[in-house]
Amino acid sequence: MPTLAQAPAADQRTVLPLERTVSSIPRPPSPQPGDETPAKWEYPSPQQFYNALVRKGWETPEESVETMVEIHNFLNEAAWGEVLKWEARDPKVDLDKIELARFQGKPGQLSPKARVHLLAAYFFPSQFSSDPPFDRHDWVVLRPSGKEVRYVIDYYSAPPEKDGSPAFNLDVRPALDSVGSIKERIVVAAEGAWKDWKKREGERR
């Protein structure tokens, strides 16, 4: 999403597309006078994506970059959809005016919830997966009221689909930065536990 170099990397053999895809994720206007910021975030082109990977020192087959960009874009669209589900729980929030103010990738930095899950997997391996998330993002959402809400997103690999296509699980939730977010997390967790209990009861009958 940020501005990245479009020039080919050193020793690059494959010509990669330079076109960028416009996301469905709204962004706030720039506070800088004269800066015509697009109304929605743009994803990096395959060339920009590859350059970013090279800069980080990650080995990436050039022929796989375009597929990786498609997966990257798909996951972020799915994450935004999950964010909107959380925001929709507040009837006073106008979803059409929700914007993604900023974001930060934190690969390798486990969220507190991911750490708890890994600890649970150590003691209860049959109930919890021991695979850590392969990526983490922190997104700051701007509401029409001017309030900012930080969301934590853990990206997990899942068993592939029947046709061999890769599958993923996203754990999207508001960060525990405020009393309101803590209450919302507790309510959602309680609702999930209630649904699971009702399902088990239904299966027993």
Rank of each mutant, 00 (worst) to 15 (best):
E87F: 00
G105L: 06
N169A: 15
L95I: 03
H72A: 07
A88Q: 10
R20D: 08
P107Y: 13
P125T: 01
Y151H: 11
L176S: 15
A190Y: 07
P46R: 02
G34T: 04
A158L: 09
P44F: 08
Q48C: 10
R13V: 13
K183A: 15
W194G: 01
L18W: 10
P107W: 06
K97L: 12
V141W: 07
L142G: 06
R136H: 13
E19D: 15
E99Q: 15
S130K: 10
R27V: 10
G81K: 12
A121V: 03
P33A: 08
W139K: 04
F103P: 00
V93H: 02
A7D: 07
R173M: 08
P28W: 09
S111L: 11
V149A: 08
L119N: 05
V116R: 13
A10Q: 14
R20S: 14
G164H: 08
T60S: 07
Y155T: 06
F168M: 01
V188R: 02
R150P: 01
K85G: 06
V152T: 11
V172N: 01
A79G: 12
V93G: 08
L142Q: 14
P28S: 04
E99S: 11
P112W: 02
V172E: 00
G146W: 04
V22R: 15
D138Q: 09
I186H: 04
L170S: 02
R89N: 06
Q6I: 02
